[in-house]
């Protein structure tokens, strides 16, 4: 299958690879997917004053899954939790030119963002 230039760029130069302290009070962690399905994404956010100050990811998956999560971390930096949680997978599909067979990669990235936001909110009831 031919990849779009943007997928190749994110795959070869992934943005924001790494991990934040899972137990850190400022950090929300999303872990979605399953090894048996061939993709697992871990996406983490560091929240300061209600805004996502930093985001990191690690992904086990195909090139499109790696690119989707890399792009997701770029998109959510500087956003409020509400803005981040409102991101739709279709924005990722459009930006990366994902073919139909790879749409599930973008869905997983959307799920990962939502899971990270949820995790942060669990640590901070009332936010």
């Amino acid at each position: 299958m031919a990849y779009s230039d943007k997928v190749i760029d994110h795959y070869e130069n992934p943005r924001n690879v790494g991990s934040l302290g899972k137990d850190d009070d400022e950090v929300g962690t999303g872990l979605v997917g399953a090894p048996a399905c061939g993709d697992v994404m871990k996406l983490q956010i560091r929240v300061k004053d209600g805004v996502i100050a930093d985001a990191k990811f690690k992904t086990f998956g195909c090139g499109s899954a790696i690119a989707s999560s890399s792009l997701a971390t770029e998109m959510i930096k500087g956003m409020t939790l509400e803005q981040a949680a409102a991101i739709k997978n279709t924005q990722i599909v459009e930006e990366l030119n994902l073919p139909p067979v790879k749409i599930h990669c973008s869905v997983l990235a959307e799920d990962a963002i939502k899971a990270a936001v949820e995790d942060y909110k669990k640590k901070h009831p009332g936010t």
Binding site: P14, V17, V32, G33, A34, A36, T59, F60, H104, D111
Partner: peptide, 23 residues
């Protein structure tokens, strides 16, 4: 280095102990 599963493995986490979300 990019793989969360490798990171867990390095940390000694049994991947079978995780509640995964098959999709």
């Amino acid at each position: 280095e990019l793989s969360p599963l490798w990171e867990m493995h390095q940390d000694g986490i049994d991947l079978n102990s995780i509640q995964w979300t098959p999709h």
